[in-house]
Design a protein around this nucleic acid. Sequence first.
DNA 1: GGCTATTTGTTCAGCCATTGAATTATTTGC
DNA 2: GCAAATAATTCAATGGCTGAACAAATAGCC
Lengths: 412, 412
Amino acid sequence: MSLTHAPAGAVRQGSLRELNLALVLGRIAAADRPPSRADLATATGLTRATVSAVVEDLLAGQLVSESEPAPRAGAGRPARGLVLADQGPAGLGLEVNVDYLAVCVVDLTGQVRHRTVHRADLRPVAPADALAQLVEIAGTARDHAADEGLTLVGAALAVPGLVDDSGVVRLAPNLGWRDVPVPALLAAHPPLVEQVPGVPALVVDNEANLAALGELHSRPPGPASFLHISGEVGIGAGIVLDGALFRGVRGWSGEIGHLPVHPEGRPCRCGGQGCLEQYAGQEAIVTAAGLARTELPADTGTARLAELAAAGDPDALRALHEAGTALGVAVAGVVNLLDLDTVVLGGGYAALAPWLCPPVLAEIASRVLTAAWSPVTVRPSTLGAEAAAVGAAGSVARRIVAQPAGWLGRSG
Amino acid sequence: MSLTHAPAGAVRQGSLRELNLALVLGRIAAADRPPSRADLATATGLTRATVSAVVEDLLAGQLVSESEPAPRAGAGRPARGLVLADQGPAGLGLEVNVDYLAVCVVDLTGQVRHRTVHRADLRPVAPADALAQLVEIAGTARDHAADEGLTLVGAALAVPGLVDDSGVVRLAPNLGWRDVPVPALLAAHPPLVEQVPGVPALVVDNEANLAALGELHSRPPGPASFLHISGEVGIGAGIVLDGALFRGVRGWSGEIGHLPVHPEGRPCRCGGQGCLEQYAGQEAIVTAAGLARTELPADTGTARLAELAAAGDPDALRALHEAGTALGVAVAGVVNLLDLDTVVLGGGYAALAPWLCPPVLAEIASRVLTAAWSPVTVRPSTLGAEAAAVGAAGSVARRIVAQPAGWLGRSG
DNA sequence: GGCTATTTGTTCAGCCATTGAATTATTTGC
DNA sequence: GCAAATAATTCAATGGCTGAACAAATAGCC
């Protein structure tokens, strides 16, 4: 139904090769078994001659490698399987959150090759100091990666807040950050990644967005369109439409926490009334369950809640049911609006999914017109706690797969 | 931020020309003054030689024509301006609605070259008969278009309901249609349009979607991302993101009418409670204003309401304020979720915009976190009553501009 | 074991579209 | 009337894809 998007700029002679490099590499990445050159030719519509030439470039550039020939029945010369290389370019993922710093390295295949989590309360730490700590950890990670033959080609930083186009963190309320010029602060340190044409050295983005990207690129890959909800202190959503993250006009999409679920309900710090966050935010759930608000790291509340619920504590169960219902009202609205068929519960919600999913599904069933014809799936995230860091690193690695020409032509 | 989308299939030698034809034609379409070949060369990055060759193809195919040279200061050979042709291919727009049938023809430039509206209550008419009437009117339109040198290359039909991928109208409640196989019914009539590779002979889509497309392609063009709300008996929204209509996983996006605005409020026919439609649907407003529900055509209620409000009738003003507030709650949620900066009120809402906009804006101001940093525009649609038919025809014409190769190569 | 069928991957001439420089065309300004 | 400036075309060169032929490698069969 949608028109094929033409490349934005001029299509020159060389673009042809660039596009076909991306096409072939994308097929190799998407295949569930190592495809042969002949497989790629039939899959892409290119001739075998062209595929051979393209693959030669990819092999030379360390983007793919030949694997063991996949056993095949019948006669014929055995195929040589092609897989994404586990050496060569890799992405660096960074995350600053309320109670931890995370760094990880993801290779082209999507595997997490290195991961460091440094637990600390970051709220009292100045942004520049927090970033300095992060850079130090990342430096170690870079060296580890280099030992394994990996070259970092770009970094993505996840923060729990609103980021503008230039990478400035406009507002990260739970971290206490406001108008923090992250790119400028990081520029004070020696560069962590090799510069590659077409790959930004640093992307700063909302953690919910990057966690959603992580889910999209996980194995097996997520659906092309889904909603990924990160339930932390605030509630953020990453919106993936047709295989691409939708960031909104200014990059601030996904503020699901302030969808009104009780328009005349409790006042919210955003100025509205009855926002979802007031009913399904972590603090709201913890309070409703009768747990005292503590100064403990934020995710402790979630873990404790899950324990209590598993033990059958009626207050916890009731609080979760109410939160799930509020979440369901909001999610039903989103599903109606965007016609999505998958909702992923991530962040703090992942651990609470067994108790949140039923009321969410119930609200969807009663409020979504089309739910009767084709059901909506609600499931927990497959990624762990630092999903945003993994998603961040993965988004860099993905970019190389989507635009291999920059990496291949970097020396020229 | 977003990656350049590569064409889905193989990029062969000929694709190069296809892509550049689309690139150059798109520039001509987007320019506000007739560009010269030299202008196009600098704008696209292609060489003048290539642009000349591409333009030659476009001229030969009746897609562009040379206009009067735009006067220019300074020395030098005068440029020959290029404009989209007002002859050649054109799109056919069709609409079946509760109280009228509409047919229109839109040329490449986006101009409505022909328009017929046949008012009749379509509810008691069998779908096959309604479509037969529509085909008859369209045949006349086709003949008129042919007299002006226009060839219809595709048709799009707008209906007030849910349409699946194959063009079957699954449900159009206000029309009383259910599982109507429109393509099959139209296939019984002689074809209305010439077959062109890459252009579907018939697209069936929701009226809200097509009205949004009409707004996107109007002159001056709408913003790249916006929400278009059609307030009829039901409330539908067309979601345009990054210059493309977002249809959702199954093509059923935009069901904004069932966003919950009072979760424990009035029961809705959808099975939910407190849906927007119960507070801002046409019937709801008319009833709240104290007007008796009549059997008159649906839009009469809107017109009467606008009259009363203009005259200062307190009941009407109160009803509109309440409806606008409910609408604002829902819109604020959407704006928070998708980070849009423009909302267009269309359909029946267009005439009521003077009274609806203020409460909508008020809700946005109080509920949208980022509204303080960059304001949200709420405005009525620039298109008239049959916006969907115009948008439908325009979407066909646009497809030729986006993919001219099919039209150019049709004889081969 | 040798032959055939089958499939994979490479080589090579041909072709198409873009490129870049040179050339022609047409106007303004001095 | 001539130089400067801008627009558009011509043409050999180039890069990348195509299609067909060819080389490589294996299974099955007698």
